[in-house]
Each structure stands twice: as C-alpha cells, then as structure tokens.
C-alpha cells in the first residue's frame, strides 16, 4: 500500500480514542462506587485520574490536527477524524461529570437519605451506554449505536422518578435538604453522561453512514 504511515496514524488515533473510552469507563464506574459506598479513598483515587484524561484528550487533538493539516483525509477517513475529535470531547465531559460525582462522598456527612436503588439502576444503564457506544465506535456498528441511544429514555424516566421522590422527602423533612441535594446533583450528572453517550452514538452513525442524526 502507498500510504502506510498515514494508515498507521489513523489506526493509532482510533486506538487512542478507545483507550480514552476505557479510562472514562473506569473513572465513571469508580466514581459511582465511591458514592454508593461513600468510599472517600476510592473517590480521591478517581479524582487523581483527571490528569490522565487531559493528557489523552491532548494527544487525540494533536493527532487530529496533524492528520488534517498534513494528510488531507478524505471520505471515510475524514469522517473518522472528525468523529474522533467529537467523541473525544464527549468523553472529556463524561470524565468531568464523573469528577463531580466523585466529589460527592467528601460532602456527604451522615450517610445517604435513602437506599440508592433507582439511582443504581440509572448508573447501570449509563455504564451500559458508555461501554456500548464505544463498542459501536470500535466495530463501526450504526445499529448498535441507535440501540444504545434508545436507552436514554429509561435514564430520563428514572431521573424524573428519583427527582420527584427526593423533592417529596425534602418537603417532609427539611433536615435532609443538604444530603438530598447531593443526590439531586448526582442524578443530574448521570442524566448528562447519558446525553454524552447519545452524542457519541450520533458520531458513530455519522462515521458509518455520513448522515447527521439526532438520537435523543
């Protein structure tokens, strides 16, 4: 083949995004565990990983600019390069929101105001969405991307249910307002992470079909 180095660069870019995805998954899962178990030491370990995420994001950006400036990628290569830039920005937001989640245990004095059952369900769906949106990117599977994005609806429903429940609890017992507010933030972060997973799915559909779609 004629452009061996160029193909290697494209391949490396794709791998970088997948590594970034794995890191984001790890950070998200640990941030959730740290909240559910109120495990401050896990939360601190998780917070320390933000810097790794910045490094990866920087590498991906640099590589995208190099490819655009020096190689003039075309057709599916161009779509790959553009998608990786967008996916990497979404992953960076997922990491940022997970950082917010990992800050909750440090503020949570006196334990949770209720068992985190629906919130746990939300977190499981979000973890599924994150993992599989990246799998859809890896395997260029537009169908999987659409299926993953469709689960956003469940996340939104759970968000609303828990929201209402927490508001009602606070109305009855004002002494829990501070701790319940932390949970309100938590479910908001989860809902936002699911939206970023949907964005990733949209990028995958664009990568595979060249069509812009809205999936949530």
């Amino acid at each position: 083949m004629v452009r061996e180095r160029y193909f290697q660069q494209l391949d490396l870019l794709k791998k970088c995004v997948l590594s970034f995805g794995e890191l984001a998954e790890l950070i998200f899962r640990d941030s959730m565990s740290s909240v559910i178990d109120l495990d401050i030491s896990l939360a601190e370990k998780t917070l320390a990983l933000e810097f790794e995420a910045d490094k990866l994001e920087g590498r991906i950006e640099a590589s995208v600019f190099d490819l655009l400036a020096l190689q003039q990628p075309m057709a599916s290569d161009l779509r790959l390069v553009v998608s990786t830039l967008k996916i990497s920005a979404d992953l960076r937001r997922v990491v940022g929101l997970s950082m917010n989640i990992a800050k909750i245990p440090g503020r949570m004095e006196g334990g949770h105001v209720k068992p985190l059952i629906d919130t746990g369900k939300m977190a499981n769906i979000v973890a599924f969405m994150l993992e599989n949106s990246l799998r859809a990117f890896e395997t260029q599977d537009a169908q999987l991307a659409r299926e993953v994005a469709a689960r956003d609806e469940e996340v939104d429903k759970l968000f609303y249910a828990v929201w209402v429940e927490l508001i009602e609890m606070m109305a009855k017992d004002t002494s829990i307002i501070s701790r319940a507010t932390n949970l309100l933030f938590l479910i908001r972060y989860l809902e936002r992470i699911a939206d970023h997973c949907c964005n990733i799915c949209e990028s995958v559909v664009y990568l595979v079909t060249a069509k812009k779609v809205t999936l949530n």
Partner: peptide, 19 residues
C-alpha cells in the same frame, strides 16, 4: 464523492488505498 463515495473502488482511490 469526497465525503461519502458509494463505490468501494472510489473510496479506495481517493483515500490512497489503491493497489
């Protein structure tokens, strides 16, 4: 053609994957 060619050989040619 340069964004989303329909034929494999077009894609291969414009992305330099020819031969």
């Amino acid at each position: 053609i340069f964004h989303n060619p329909q034929e494999r050989s077009t894609e291969d040619y414009i992305t330099g994957r020819f031969g």
